[in-house]
């Protein structure tokens, strides 16, 4: 068999991608493709896990038992989603411990949105509706991506996430039908979460260092700005439907493009939060580190028991 050079392999790889073929774990892939996937997938997984914290903050204080059960199930799903995606990164030859280690030491990033505090119950509505709404737009696109295990995880996650999105909207719709204070609480929450939600799609296309490569490899099928636009277009009518307004004085429907045009995103804030200077960065990282450290003896006890049992079986 002819041994192919690195360039020839890469060419063949790109041909497969261009034909729309799906790459599976054992297939040859450029090292850079593997690295980019690990970076992107682990960031995604960390975001799911950190995302448990702002909402977890309200589980014990949810205003009804139904809402409590719903929120608990939703936050639990985030743990599941993190787990599915970590499993995906493991197929690339890197263990969950390794990627978790990079996260806990602050080497790896996660979505900036979770560094904002959840101050009121309405924020749980805003997170479900806006944050999960944005996540669904993102993940629906990722579900068609070129790496099999990542795409499969996305399919499963999208199915589960639809309820997250709707329960958030239901919370806000209920508040908007309530007292003046409740309506103000809902609007205040949207005022705080609208812009950070738009930032979830990442830097704009002319300033996104990884995008071109990811699109060439079809890990991403659409650019950040395209997805952001898609999110805005589908969200504004939902807001109007229950009487919420988004805090953007430049937002307007453009009859020509058939899209909403919007104001400029505050990229200084975005970079600050990404680089650890958001309101809750320290608190979130501490919570995750504490959980990991406090759980060490639990994980080790289970290991020790398994070893003892294995050696007993051998002896017998």
């Amino acid at each position: 068999m002819k041994i192919l050079s690195e360039e020839e392999l890469e060419l063949k790889f790109q041909e497969r991608i261009d034909k729309g073929e799906i790459i599976e774990p054992k297939d040859w892939m450029p090292e850079r493709y593997r690295k980019q996937l690990i970076r992107m997938m682990s960031q995604h997984a960390h975001s799911e896990i950190v995302g448990m914290l702002p909402e977890g903050n309200w589980i014990t204080r949810a205003p009804s038992l139904r809402r409590k059960a719903v929120l608990l199930a939703k936050v639990q799903d985030e743990a599941g989603h993190g787990l599915y995606i970590y499993s995906g990164t493991e197929t690339l030859g890197i263990s969950r411990d390794q990627v978790m280690g990079d996260f806990l030491t602050g080497k790896a990033k996660y979505s900036s949105i979770f560094n904002y505090p959840t101050l009121t119950w309405a924020d749980i509505g805003a997170i479900g509706w806006l944050v999960d709404g944005a996540a669904i737009v993102n993940q629906t696109a990722l579900a068609k991506g070129s790496y099999g295990p990542y795409a499969r995880a996305m399919v499963r996650i999208c199915k589960e996430e639809n309820f997250h999105h709707k329960q958030g909207y239901e919370i806000l719709a209920t508040l908007m039908k309530g007292s003046k204070e409740q309506r103000e609480m809902a609007q205040d929450s949207i005022n705080r979460f609208w812009w950070p939600s738009l930032m979830m799609f990442g830097p704009s296309d002319n300033n996104s260092p990884n995008s071109a490569e990811l699109i060439k490899w079809k890990v991403k099928k659409y650019s950040n700005d395209e997805l952001r636009q898609r999110f805005i277009d589908r969200t504004i009518p939902q807001a109007e439907n229950i009487g919420l307004t988004v805090p953007d004085k430049d937002l307007k429907w453009d009859e020509e493009t058939r899209h909403y045009s919007h104001g400029e995103i505050n990229w200084v804030e975005f970079n600050n939060v990404i680089n650890g200077r958001g309101i809750c960065n320290k608190e979130r990282m501490k919570a995750r580190r504490d959980a990991h450290e406090n759980g060490a003896w639990v994980r080790e006890a289970a290991n020790a028991y398994a070893r003892k049992k294995a050696s007993k079986t051998k002896a017998a």
Partner: peptide, 10 residues
Amino acid sequence: GSVHAPDKEM
């Protein structure tokens, strides 16, 4: 999908 576990029962 996958899970991590110390032994078969878990």
